[in-house]
Amino acid sequence: MDSGDTDDRLLQRIGAGERQAFAVLTERHLDRVYRLALRVLGRSADAEEVAQEVFLQVWQRADRWRPGRAQFSTWLYRVTLNRALDYRQRAGPEHAVWDESVAPGDPVPPAEQALEQAARRQQIERALAELPLNQRTAMSLTYDSGLSNAAAAQVMQISVKALEALLVRARRALRERLAAELIEK
């Protein structure tokens, strides 16, 4: 489906009302937008709502995008993060609970390896869910979205140094939680 157009070019086409371009852009970014919202909100239904709001905004405002002034993905993650934080604030602190239902059973059927992976995944998710919100967000932008430290800092509107401080604390916490497994492997 991906047309190979840059995000900027797709936005130009969306600005002209081209649905196909919107479908390509959605295909390209939806996974990461959803996962970032999920890390902030913890509930699949809430993350879904935020993702829909974000892409609605893309559809309605694509014509205002100025190519070359910023990277679209950075803008998109910032909008996602802001929307998710607003949503979280409106919904109250109880929304910070991790939704176990988002972790599916491992699709690979057999045995020990699959079970081991599923168990580890759950362990990592729990450990992540226990991190403070800003550390969790930094981890999500780094690992889920695959952003560089500089880009993640831009999305969070903090300095690179501040972002790296969050990553250091988060990685230490996760390493402690997973110490036994890390040493075994």
Binding site: R35, L38, V102, R121, I124, E125, Y143
Partner: peptide, 10 residues
């Protein structure tokens, strides 16, 4: 683990 587990888990 973080990269793969998290992407697959959501």
């Amino acid at each position: 683990w973080l990269t793969h587990s998290l992407r697959e888990s959501a």
